[in-house]
Design a protein around this nucleic acid. Structure first.
Lengths: 155, 155
DNA sequence: GAAATTTAGTTTGATATTCAAACTAAATTA
DNA sequence: TAATTTAGTTTGAATATCAAACTAAATTTC
């Protein structure tokens, strides 16, 4: 093996370890940043749930449970907490009285935007120094990863 | 805003959502793949711990707890499970009888390698179709991300 | 159109995970 | 040698999770 391919092996190994390490750190930072702000009663998991509800406005409880791959019972418990803390609202569905649609309160939307701003900053730094072609290339790598995930999930 | 920068905004938004989505999926897939193999009694968290112990052989319990950012009590509980299942061993330290060094059993090393093989495949697919320059570029993006994480963690 | 079935969400009961603080035993320092 | 520090475990409390039982509403079947 020559030094050129050694170099590339080192790069792929680095990418491998990085992919493993990065997420835990992001979750931890997200929680600590959010707790420095006015949202002191929120965990990383709860931010994630608020993000999902904000992204999928007025979806039903079952739909959100499916998106997050949580059981309906677990989601009910989480919703109780987030409703009590004033971030999420349950909206009775007028057509079908079995259905509860979910939405964010104005406090919930504030949290959503604060979290979104943090992520925008994160991605800005992730892509720092890259031109448009580079960004397309990195996007393609993420598409590859999602394709792989879909493939393995489907089989 | 012109259509060119619209395009790039869409790419960065995609990368943003992707970064959030991908990890959960990877954890889920890892667990389901590992459970299809001969290691049916293992959770994703436990694979992660086995990976860490494999990577940092013969480290002390406190060192591993620090690496994983777990309390010592939590690690003790996890070690009890993994020792019972036969993946991890506690090795009494001869110089200092307070210290327990951690290592993998041969079954643990098998799991370590199976998990590693899965990750190698994952990264291979992540980098599919890219040349050496592209890979260096993607590595740089991961370095950017780790730098950002370090920066925010430090402050 | 009443009875049976299905669906949406909640409640319940059991199990897992985690942490901080108290604790034990060993090593180091005074 | 006594006091302190260190490494790891135990304990007790708080959370999170799931599957299964349950309730109420809607749909289907006869």
């Amino acid at each position: 093996m020559n030094s050129q391919s050694d170099e590339i092996k080192k790069d792929t190994d680095f990418i491998n370890e990085s992919l493993i390490n990065v997420y835990d750190s992001i979750m931890r930072i997200e929680e600590s940043e959010i707790r420095k702000s006015r949202f002191k009663d929120i965990t990383a998991k709860e931010v994630h749930l608020v993000h999902t509800i904000g992204l999928h406005d007025r979806k039903t409880t079952s739909e959100v449970a499916h998106i997050l791959k949580l059981s309906k019972g677990t989601l009910t418990a989480n919703l109780n907490n987030l409703e009590r803390k004033g971030y999420v609202m349950r909206i009775a569905n007028q057509e079908d009285h079995r259905i509860i649609n979910l939405g964010l309160t104005s406090k919930g939307r504030l949290l959503y935007r604060a979290h979104d701003a943090f992520h925008t900053l994160l991605v800005k730094r992730f892509l720092r120094g890259f031109n448009d072609d580079d960004i397309r290339l990195i996007k393609q790598a993420m598409v590859n990863l999602e394709d792989f995930i879909d493939e393995v999930s489907a089989k």
